[in-house]
Design a binder for these strands. Structure first.
Lengths: 131, 131
DNA sequence: GTTCGTGCAAAGGTTTTGCACGAGT
DNA sequence: ACTCGTGCAAAACCTTTGCACGAAC
């Protein structure tokens, strides 16, 4: 395995991920980090996002609409996608509920479940207010 | 909105989806339906899968690895992805648990949650046996 | 000096789309 | 007849990768 060397670009990506709740796509990360490193390439962003995901410092989330999203919050938590406006939000089920759910799932299943990720769908409060 | 006309190709796609538990990708659907309709095009498969998804006769599932998968089972249920062998399985949490989970989520959230989809990760029984 | 990360550009894979024609009503 | 679905091919996306150079060790 290759040793991991410091890189300013990776550091900037990590800081951006930590600073936002936007669940940005790779392209969004690219556009933000570009402000600080105008020459950074999209390939570098992808390489670093995948690297961070592999070493457990970020999470990759797949949604049915468009590209994958990345999240710097690695503690187990779930997400909500508004089917009207497309907003993508954190949803803080408490840890106990998540563990409870995994345990419940383990009971109906003869493999071993180590983690889970739930995507909730519905209408966000803004959309409800408008209708 | 356009009226919906019958098509043999769409029917074949529906039947294939109903007959399998493989959670096929669009390409897999294409290859199977091709046996019956050698001239069918991948574009048609995509158009129909998206159509079926829109009218609620199929579900589109996004996973972090590779393309989206489709599922003809539209009743709420969840999925399991083996992190070792990549196997993708149904996981039958009973309805009560799913409803309970959605209700729990609604309590921590000021929008309205209508549905959810959970992807569980872990090791399937085959991989456990081998290790 | 060696190794690893980067920028660039090209390639790879998946999904969508414009068009003319043929199937369904 | 009229409309919608199809096949085909091109395009649009998203993501990965080969390469030569520069940064980190």
């Amino acid at each position: 395995m290759a040793a991991l060397k410091y890189s300013r670009q990776r550091e900037a990506i990590k800081h951006y991920l930590a600073s936002t709740k936007e669940h940005p796509t790779a392209d969004t990360v690219y556009m933000h980090v570009k402000k600080e490193f105008p020459n950074i390439s999209l390939g570098t962003v992808y390489r670093n996002l995948n690297l961070l995901t592999d070493i457990g410092e970020a999470i990759k989330i797949s949604t049915p609409d468009g590209g994958d999203r990345f999240d710097g919050t690695v503690q187990p938590h779930n997400h909500f996608l508004c089917t009207k406006c497309g907003r993508f939000l954190d949803l803080e089920l408490d840890m106990k509920s998540i563990e409870e759910m995994n345990r419940l799932a383990n009971d109906c299943f003869d493999g071993m479940i180590t983690s889970s990720s739930t995507l909730f769908y519905g209408e966000c409060s803004d959309c409800i207010r408008k209708s």
